[in-house]
Design a protein around this nucleic acid. Structure first.
Lengths: 146, 146
DNA sequence: TGTTGTACTTGCACATTGCAAGTGAATTTT
DNA sequence: AAAATTCACTTGCAATGTGCAAGTACAACA
């Protein structure tokens, strides 16, 4: 496990957030858990970016320690583990979506449709609500199937 | 100077954004230039977080290469350099402010007043407009004083 | 002319990352 | 019941990145 966050890293809101998830791999894990319905270690591991296994383990335990992910044994299969996003993680959705809207504008090779940014600009609350519902659906499905 | 971003790092909007500024020091530089009116090397260097000089130089040149900062000699003093935020950098404001709102909620030692988050929730566009105006004011002041 | 201020670069020890391989517990297959 | 497989990690090591201290280059000032 990696070292704890520095004690003086609270206070300033930018710094606090940066201390918790300002890292390439952190963002990709958040994307996977919040937008792509991924929940298990191998789900994350098999993302196309090819995160290495030690880094993934480290980031998952950091997120758990920060109260962003809730680690539980998979109700469908006791040998497996699920990481569920907490409210604290869900509340990052607007930031993540804001980043996506920005990238859609500035990445000339973006694969996201312009309609996505448009929909968010027109009705952000509704867009967030849609993703929240998806997250709840994925989590509920896992518990239903036990 | 650090290595260029990987060629396949475009496409996915989360990944693109993560490739450009998902780093502790990147966020702090963006905070300083977008919210604290900092423009010169020593302004950034003197932030309380204590960024080291080689890392600062690296991040500034990365941001310049990514079209986020516009490097110019200071019109007030030719031996000095100014880094002005471009439109691409300004458009990150909603993301940065979203992070601050989130931190205000979850950092028990947050120094930001609750009124800040409240104001943003009530009228996000107006909050962004206020920061945009501040940025323009700082930049204009530098050119006026030449 | 020398000193100061500003923006860096360089060198080196230390920390983190990436890759490959290995571990151990719990199913699944034979 | 034994063997193979799945899953979630851990470990070792080379390569990369970071942090600190010192040094450099150039313009402005005294």
């Amino acid at each position: 496990m990696s070292k704890a966050p520095k004690p003086g890293w609270h206070g300033c809101p930018t710094r606090y957030a940066a201390g918790i998830f300002a890292d390439k791999w952190c963002f990709l894990v958040l994307r996977d858990v919040l937008l792509h319905g991924k929940r298990t270690y191998s789900d994350f591991y098999n993302s196309p970016e090819g995160i290495s296994t030690n880094i993934l383990a480290d980031r998952l335990s950091r997120f758990e320690a920060a109260g962003m992910l809730d680690r539980q044994t998979d109700p469908r299969k006791a040998s497996r583990v699920c990481y569920f996003p907490t409210r604290k993680a869900r509340d990052i959705l607007p930031v993540l979506i804001g980043m996506m809207v920005w990238s859609t504008k500035y990445d000339e090779r973006s694969e996201a449709p312009d309609s996505f940014a448009e929909a968010y600009q027109n009705d952000p609350d509704n867009t967030i609500a849609w993703y929240e519902a998806e997250i709840s659906r994925v989590d509920a499905e896992i518990f239903q199937a036990q």
